[in-house]
Simulated assay, not measured.
Amino acid sequence: MNTRQDFRFEVCANGVESCLAAQEGGADRVELCTGIPEGGTTPSYGEIKAARRLLTSTRLHVIIRPRGGDFLYTPLEIERMMTDISVCKELGADGVVFGCLTKDGEVDMDSNRRLMQCAEGMSVTFHRAFDMCRNPQKALEDIISLGFDRILTSGQQPDALSGAPLLQELNKQATGRIILLAGCGVNENNIGRLRSLTGLNEFHFSARTKVRSNMEYINTQVYMGSKDADEASIDITSAARVSQTIKACLE
């Protein structure tokens, strides 16, 4: 018999509104980020501050990722990431989420160690940079040795359900030394199966729905970003979908 206390649910929140929906839906924590099309980047000072003020029962974790693309960072990028972690700590965030790799697809021990020192006292997640590692078993041991609390991973596949075999294997290897947080493509329709296949008890999902813009006039000849992007709507986390996904896991 699965009980709510057996699991932790994290919502990938692309703004304060999504944070509030996650909290209303019963999420244990949010991973606050912007730049979703790039896989998530560090949100603004104002976004973090507002989320911290409004989240009262849901924990706030903030992604520390200065740009999209790979996870091989320059010294200047590491410097900015350290500053961002300090800002998150100053604003009262409960945790941060980051991950640095070497050019050979290994865990960058030096860079991650520097960031871990900045994040002392906070909960720390190694994000899906893990899914780009050459050797996931070795990467797991490296990340454990650095002192991370959990790893967000899809099992090195395009979605967590496809990566279920590796997620199960890594969970056995971890033997309780670190938490495996299954994420990417997790929703109310597959979370129960994912739970059964992996034995994991932490899940990461977005539960977003498309909301149409309130603009009455839109110039369709001009684009602020990609020509193919839908700029007449935004995706926001749905409290109902968060609740439904949690319920589906417990059934």
Rank of each mutant, 00 (worst) to 15 (best):
F98M: 08
L152M: 04
V97Q: 05
T83P: 02
Q156M: 15
S145M: 09
A93V: 04
N190T: 00
G199V: 03
S196W: 11
L91G: 00
P165M: 01
T83M: 02
V87W: 08
Q117T: 04
L197C: 13
L115R: 12
N171Q: 13
D108A: 14
H204C: 15
T102Q: 07
E120L: 04
L91I: 00
S196T: 13
S213H: 01
C88I: 07
A182H: 01
Q137P: 04
Q157E: 13
D131C: 05
I191P: 13
M122R: 06
N214H: 05
A182M: 01
L170Q: 00
V87S: 01
K89R: 14
S111F: 05
I179V: 14
L146C: 10
R114G: 01
D108V: 12
L166S: 02
G199K: 10
L101M: 15
P158H: 00
E141K: 15
D110S: 14
G192R: 11
D149N: 15
L194Q: 07
N112L: 06
E141I: 03
R134D: 08
R113C: 11
D142T: 09
F126G: 07
G199Y: 12
E90C: 04
K138D: 11
L140D: 13
G183I: 01
C100N: 06
D108P: 09
K89G: 12
R128T: 10
E169F: 03
G155S: 05
K138W: 02
G163Q: 01
D94Y: 08
A129D: 09
S196L: 15
T153F: 04
K172A: 09
V87A: 02
K103N: 10
V124L: 09
E188K: 06
I144D: 08
N171A: 13
H204A: 12
N190V: 06
F203C: 13
A182L: 07
R128S: 04
H204I: 14
R113W: 10
G199Q: 08
S123Q: 12
R128G: 12
S162C: 03
L91C: 03
S213D: 07
L152Q: 04
D104P: 02
D104A: 11
P158S: 06
V107W: 10
R195Q: 15
L166M: 12
A119Q: 11
I179W: 08
G176H: 09
G105W: 03
G95E: 07
G105Q: 07
F205V: 05
N190L: 10
N171S: 14
D149H: 15
S111G: 12
A174P: 03
P165G: 04
I151E: 03
E169C: 12
F130A: 05
C100H: 07
A164M: 06
D110Q: 10
G163L: 01
C118L: 00
T102K: 02
F98W: 10
